[in-house]
């Protein structure tokens, strides 16, 4: 088995890298793939929280690198899905605790046992970014339709293009607000895609459900009814090579759609 190593990065912080990682990873595992997620945000780990695994972590990536445990011992299994694992970041160390070569080595080892290795990249373009990218051959650039996020994504794309190992990168547009786009108060999906001239892999609507799902430590892809969850599941399908049309968010979030959803929930039939 040779797994695909995909780094999830953004440049700017707070655009939803870790949320994206948790959801795509969970969705890929739900679809039957063996998935491991690596949190490389040393000192600021959060992926464990989003997956609700914070109490199960015994060893971290730094323990693996410093040979206090074997790689397999450090992999934490997901509560629900045995196909899903997490290699957590150390909370007490900084970005220099792991080198590019060490991360590459870990990715190469994991490739043998997993279909997908998702690397959660820290914000910024310094060593943390360089480390996270080191073992990857594909990248997902997460951005939002805001100027600062798009600008930083452009920087990241420039850096990714300079890396020979990265064979392809795709854009994931997060926190899209159809009503603001409709009123011309926010850049549209098309605007961002045109400005960055990158291929799109997902459009995720802004969803209050993300907040509650983070609080519960339960990725939103597990909620069949959630629009953001469906959008993330579609991203996972596209990663697996399926052609899935993008959800028309304007239509899906319109009043008519909400009324329909309300009634279908009342009647109790699954949409």
């Amino acid at each position: 088995m040779t797994g695909r190593v995909i780094v999830i990065t953004s440049g700017k912080g707070g655009v939803g890298k870790t949320t994206t990682n948790a959801n795509i990873g969970t969705a890929l595992a739900r679809a039957g793939n063996k998935v491991v997620m690596i949190d490389t945000d040393l000192g600021l780990r959060n992926l464990d929280l989003l997956l609700g695994l914070e109490n199960r972590i015994v060893y971290t990536i730094v323990d693996v690198v410093e040979e206090r445990c074997k790689l397999k011992q450090a992999l934490v299994k997901d509560k629900k899905n045995p196909n899903l694992c997490l290699l957590a970041a150390a909370q007490t160390r900084d970005k220099t605790a792991v080198t590019e070569e060490q991360l590459k080595e870990i990715c190469d080892k994991l490739k043998k046992d997993f279909d997908f290795i998702l690397v959660d990249c820290p914000a910024g373009i310094e060593q943390g970014f360089q480390n996270a990218v080191a073992g990857a051959t594909e990248a997902i650039v997460v951005t939002t339709p805001e100027m600062s996020a798009v600008r930083d994504a452009d920087r990241i794309i420039g850096l990714l293009e300079a890396k020979e190992e990265i064979k392809s990168y795709k854009l994931l547009l997060n926190r899209v607000r159809p009503n603001l786009i409709k009123s011309n108060d926010m850049m549209s999906v098309e605007d961002v895609v045109e400005i960055l001239s990158a291929e799109l892999i997902g459009i995720i609507p802004e969803d209050t459900g993300i907040i509650t799902s983070t609080n519960k430590g339960e990725p939103i892809v597990n909620d069949e009814k959630s629009l953001a969850g469906t959008a993330y599941r579609n991203v996972a399908k596209r990663i697996m090579g399926e052609e899935v049309p993008f959800i028309d968010l304007e239509e899906a979030t319109s009043v008519v759609a909400k009324v329909k959803k309300f009634f279908s929930n009342l009647i109790g039939k699954e949409k």
């Binding site: 100027m147 420039g158 011309n184 850049m187 605007d191 400005i195």
Partner: peptide, 21 residues
């Protein structure tokens, strides 16, 4: 003003990215 918020963002971004690149 309302119409322009998105346009302004796009145009400012284009200029900034041109300089960045």
């Amino acid at each position: 003003k309302e119409e322009n918020a998105k346009e302004v963002a796009c145009n400012r971004l284009r200029v900034v990215l041109m300089q960045d690149r």
